[in-house]
Design a protein around this nucleic acid. Sequence first.
DNA 1: AAAGTTTGTGCAACCCAGTTGCAAAGTTAA
DNA 2: TTAACTTTGCAACTGGGTTGCACAAACTTT
Lengths: 137, 137
Amino acid sequence: MKNEIDKKLTDKNIKPTAMRELVLQVLSEQKTATSLPELERKFEKADKATLYRTLKTFEENKLIHSIDDGTGSVKYALCQDACECHPEDLHVHFLCTRCKKTYCLNDITVPTINLPKNFSLESVNMVVKGACSNCKS
Amino acid sequence: MKNEIDKKLTDKNIKPTAMRELVLQVLSEQKTATSLPELERKFEKADKATLYRTLKTFEENKLIHSIDDGTGSVKYALCQDACECHPEDLHVHFLCTRCKKTYCLNDITVPTINLPKNFSLESVNMVVKGACSNCKS
DNA sequence: AAAGTTTGTGCAACCCAGTTGCAAAGTTAA
DNA sequence: TTAACTTTGCAACTGGGTTGCACAAACTTT
Ligand SMILES: [Mn+2]
Ligand SMILES: [Mn+2]
Ligand SMILES: [Zn+2]
Ligand SMILES: [Zn+2]
């Protein structure tokens, strides 16, 4: 449904170009987070730089958030509706060491940490590794 | 004290070569974690591949652990004496967004997470970002 | 001690994710 | 229509990480 996609874009003040619609479409269909290289493979025809800048725009406008799971390529997933990517919005991510898929555990907020004196908190990246339900033998 | 350094190496079943002694010496002097590129700069003369393999050996033998703080270069820090790098040994890391230094918060163990059904846990990477005590304005 | 074997080092080349400059194409505004 | 701005495509580059290979150094065996 193109109108839904366009609405999501305009709601976040992103001009809905053809490219952006396609990328958001694909991202919306994923159950796990997607990296730039993966996106390149899904769009044989599209240019890496364009995809790169598309993701950057999406992230800057808080339509998606990025996840560094340590695999060497940053992955991206849609933000929850009201997400502002503030520390209190943050959730835990899970990387399956078997299938290498990265899940947003949206229900699991990152635990609060008592930092040492005079350290201030801006954000947290918490990635749990293990076997996902599909891969557990 | 070279004997202390050598002992640390042999205790972890690492043959104490000149290179390894130097690298361990430098790592021991740091209060924050060190990346391979940083190490390269500290050892103008040494070869990148050698340093790389030295770090790898150290890590495999649990003399050091690696920290992916999302800055693009993996950092390394000495393990605690009895550390086996198991989930229960893991601690939180802190990346200062100002000075880019990465601290081991050895006293802060990573909180336990209740994973979704049929997900199993192998390890956790938890990196808190913010301002360190030196950089807090 | 000499010969053989294993281990470590240095160099060069490579891989790949990410990033940037620049010009062409498309869009919007005057 | 022209001008200004935005998006896209291409190419080139950066930088961290990694590997193959030959040489050197350190142990083993005879
Ligand atoms: Mn997420
Ligand atoms: Mn640490
Ligand atoms: Zn899996
Ligand atoms: Zn700092």
